[in-house]
Amino acid sequence: MTIAKRELSSLGREKTIVLALVLQLFIAAFSSFLVVGLVSLYDPGQVGGYEVDVAVAGDATDELVRAADEVRGVDPSVYPDAASATSAFENPAATGIDAVLIGERRDGRLFVSASVPDSNVQTTVVVVQLRDVLRNLERAERLDRAASLSTLPIDLPPETRSSPYYGFTYTVLVPLLLFLPVFISGSLTVDSLTEERERGTLELLRVAPVTLREIVDGKLLAAATLAPAQAVLWLVLLGFNGTDVASPATLVVLVAALSTLVCSLAAAVALLAPERRTAQFLYSIGVLFVFGGTTLFPHNPVNTAARLAIGSADAAAPFVVLAYAVGAAGVYVAVRYLVGDVDANEL
């Protein structure tokens, strides 16, 4: 406990760690504002206040207008031919046209050409809006032509009208705030052990009446408890911002299990790789491979955290969290055995 308190007190003097904590605090405290800004980057129509005026022409004018009317923030204007629509697009100051959609039917197929502004910020907004228009057109055409097809394609998934704010908050923001402290805690463990070895201060610690295992345990305790403590604070701040989390206790247990697992692996890397840069590199690569590999499974940490936060977790979710806890305990025990096998003279 003395070593753990010493580690925690030293964190306040680490500017990088303090800045990381401040950044996470800002994200959690002002999450409602950040969600609006970040969602507007990939779904501008949901923000409101900006209209994309589209010139529509060609043989499929009616179909394009119907598809555009279903997209929020898109205002279609019908032109008699492609030349007049293009001319209006080339003179936006007078016409206010932001893009052009020209639909033509050839050989029983519908071809649509789109023109958007070149190389400016407006281009991103226009492209995203036109993408939604073309998706609606494709869905409508597919449904209309299904009866004339000799072979029916795969059924379209049901059309959803969910809010992008809802999906972004629970699939991006909440996992980010929960798992970022876990990775930082692992990095702290690597730095703490490698610095003690490089500076020779680990030998001074061993003069005290503590064993090497107790030294490692103290450092793991300080680093592994930091992540769940932050998770509790972030969830409270999210609640103040109107983001309700369905299973906060289970999420904190999940974070604690992953923090123990990652910090134990980080301690093993630091014991086996005495040089700080090498240890940090191995830790970073290992975390990327391990965490990236888990995304291949349906019950990966991000998916489990998102479903627990939303309240749509199935009956297997508690067992998944328990499995992570058991795995973390197993890795911790293995690291303690590794510490016992390390020759004190090499440290």
Rank of each mutant, 00 (worst) to 15 (best):
M1G: 13
T2Q: 00
R6L: 10
L8S: 02
L8I: 05
S10F: 09
S10R: 15
G12Q: 10
K15N: 10
K15C: 03
I17S: 11
V18M: 02
L21F: 01
L23Y: 14
F26K: 02
I27M: 07
I27T: 09
A29Y: 00
S32E: 13
G37E: 10
P44Y: 11
Q46A: 09
Q46C: 11
Q46N: 12
E51W: 14
E51F: 10
V52K: 06
A60I: 05
D62V: 00
V65H: 05
D69W: 08
E70G: 05
V74W: 05
D75K: 13
S77H: 07
Y79W: 03
Y79M: 00
P80E: 08
D81A: 04
T86W: 00
S87W: 03
S87K: 01
T95E: 13
I97V: 15
D98V: 00
D98C: 07
V100Y: 04
V100A: 00
F111Y: 12
S113N: 08
A114F: 07
V116R: 13
P117I: 02
P117M: 01
D118H: 06
N120L: 01
V121P: 00
V128M: 08
V128G: 02
D132M: 07
D132C: 00
L134F: 08
E141G: 13
E141L: 11
R145D: 12
A146L: 12
L149C: 14
T151L: 15
T151P: 05
L152Y: 02
P153T: 01
I154W: 08
T160H: 07
R161V: 04
R161K: 06
S163M: 05
Y166Q: 04
Y170Q: 11
L173I: 13
L176T: 14
L180S: 15
V182F: 12
I184H: 05
I184F: 13
L188G: 14
T189Q: 13
L193E: 13
L193Q: 11
T194N: 10
E196M: 15
R199M: 09
E203R: 15
L204C: 00
R206E: 08
T211P: 05
L212I: 06
V216M: 04
D217I: 00
D217Q: 10
D217H: 14
L221H: 10
A222E: 08
A224T: 03
P228G: 01
Q230F: 01
Q230V: 06
A231H: 06
A231G: 04
L235C: 03
F240S: 02
N241P: 00
D244N: 09
A246H: 14
S247W: 15
L251V: 12
L251D: 05
V255Q: 01
A256R: 00
A266I: 05
A268R: 02
L271Y: 11
E275F: 02
R276F: 03
Y283N: 11
I285G: 04
V290T: 15
G292R: 12
G293H: 10
G293M: 10
L296W: 04
P298S: 11
V302W: 14
N303M: 15
N303C: 11
A306L: 04
G311P: 04
D314M: 14
A316C: 01
F319I: 01
V320S: 09
A323P: 07
Y324N: 13
Y324P: 11
Y324T: 10
V331D: 14
Y332S: 14
V333N: 12
A334L: 14
A334Y: 13
L338D: 13
G340P: 12
D341T: 05
A344W: 05
E346T: 15
L347P: 09
